[in-house]
Design a binder for these strands. Sequence first.
DNA 1: GCGGGTTCATAATA
DNA 2: CTATTATGAACCCG
Length: 668
Amino acid sequence: MEGGVAGNTVPPNSFDKSQVYDVKPLRSLLPVFPGATNGPPFGTAPPNSPFPSGFSPFFPFSPPQGSPSTPVLNQNHFNSTAVPIRSFRADLPTSNGKNVHSSRKRKLAGSSSVKKKVKRSNESELALAALANFKPGISVVEKDDGNRELVETVLMRFDALRRKVSQIEDSKEPHSEVFKHANLKAGNIMLTKGVRTNGKKRIGVVPGVEIGDIFFFRMELILVGVHSQSMAGIDFMPMKGSDIEGERVAVSIVSAGGYEDDAEDPDVLVYTGQGGNANADKEASDQKLVRGNLALERSLHRANEVRVIRGFKDIFHPTSKVYVYDGLFKVQESWIEKGKTGCNIFKYKLVRTPGQTGAFSTWKSIKKWRADPSSRDGLILPDLTSGAESTPVSLVNEVDDEKGPAYFTYVSTVKYPKSFKLVQPSVGCNCSDACHPGNSNCPCNQKNGGDFPYIANGNLVCRKPMIYECGSSCPCFRNCKNRVSQTGFKVRYEVFKTRGKGWGLRSWDPIRAGTFLCEYAGEVLEKVEGQGGEDVENNDYVFHTNRVYESFKWNHETESAGEASSNTGEAFDIPTPLIISSKNSGNVARFMNHSCSPNVFWQPIMYEQNNEAFLHIAFFTKKHIPPMTELTYDYGTPLHTDGMGSYNADHGKKKCLCGSPKCRGYFY
DNA sequence: GCGGGTTCATAATA
DNA sequence: CTATTATGAACCCG
């Protein structure tokens, strides 16, 4: 993994000497820091904290056999022998009276489908039904009108449920009659339970939804009240009281490239009316001035604001789309023209209401940078990893004259000192090509308690005390999905100069919740009891597992009898504290700043290399993250009890500039 | 590994 | 209650 990692980057000749990067081979790690000319304001890694008294040198975890010490976070009720996913509790009542699946029943016209349905209704069907067994936790008022927090909560809860549904679907037999629309199923459950917000239709701003917010499913737009049509591109509502069709105005449109829209000027959108398309039953026809078309015509005359949502191809999922809320527009004019098919189509020219910073222009710029990275303003280096990662990372400064962070060696993974030995060998699997989520005999599945950690696209399903990935002794090399954190990041990053927080990390790509970002690379520090640890104390580039981290809810919650409140956290199970320094060598993770309202979290992952199991710290996105949004995680608070006497609680305390309403005011 | 066609779905609406 | 509508999403194929 670390083999062959090149040294550093070669800067242009014009650089100030004190800031020049040296090209150094990995092996000759030297803590060479060219003059600290740029001061300390790097908001990156925190200084160290004292160890708990019980600290001892790292040793391996996770005996493979027997019961993993992994607490069970969900209701899945696994016992120590790790049962497959199909053994989801089947005894859960279909809460709230109504079985979710009743909505799935088809018209009984053709009786052939009935047989299949009955046949598979006892296993995963019941597992899916169990997912609907949770408290809505949304009041009537909140259902009608939202705010930022509600919008984020609803979206996070939806996606947690969607990933859980996907996980169950993934574990079914291949080629079985499968319902793959996990987003629809999750959405159906959310709507049935009333977990939504801004359900009251409105013209203009939707409380809690901001320009630039991204969505990956039309269902998400419905759930937070941006656009309530599941497929149609034009949403509308009656003007005051009157409910005659002619009195409805358009409230939002989705421009997703299905028609011949014009999308050059970011402040202007020429949108095609709906209808008239050919389908299996009928030929293309003239569009009619009804429904959405009529509503847009009314909006032209009433001059009301119309929300615009733009759809783009999702480069990580070429078959699906990512939607961006682009702000408020007004219909300026309309006309009829001949479409490709020769039939009449309506056209509507919408113009952005002044004073809004649209999101579309940013997306267009990124498209340009992607084609030609040197076109990025403020570019210092096209790839600060020097090829160590499969995806380049740009170094950019649009803020001041600083030519880059202090010297470090780029490495893509964490490195353990030789002295860390494995006590017990790790057991790999025998899966020939790839581990299948439904295979209960796979030891790697068993180590994960029967829950495959990732869905098919590589997104994390839920946080767990520990995740066990396949290692180097597993023969499933080529296609195994249980190696997400080992296959390198796919996100196109840039390291950029922030205002006041040193260097930071952000992405050109829109990122889904649960996406693997990177691991925390660097050198694992050994701390010998009794001896100092100056290497830790004065190091701003350190990751600690043994801090106090604010708990938060990310997993899908289900009620289950007898498991009352033990399910508070998604706490980790790390047998021995781990400290990683990225001061001398590290990866993009060392540039992630602290935030009290972070959009990224970390997750311990274990896998075996050369018969030794190692712990890695992997970062995943907490929610959907729009392009160019700074990536941040919670640095946590040091434990102040080291059992060895004096410790200054304020040591390393820094003023926090995260700007969150929940800001604690400082961080370490 | 795309782009286009096919199939299976949906929520809101009339 | 049912049919209709629609810029969906996943999958299949060449």
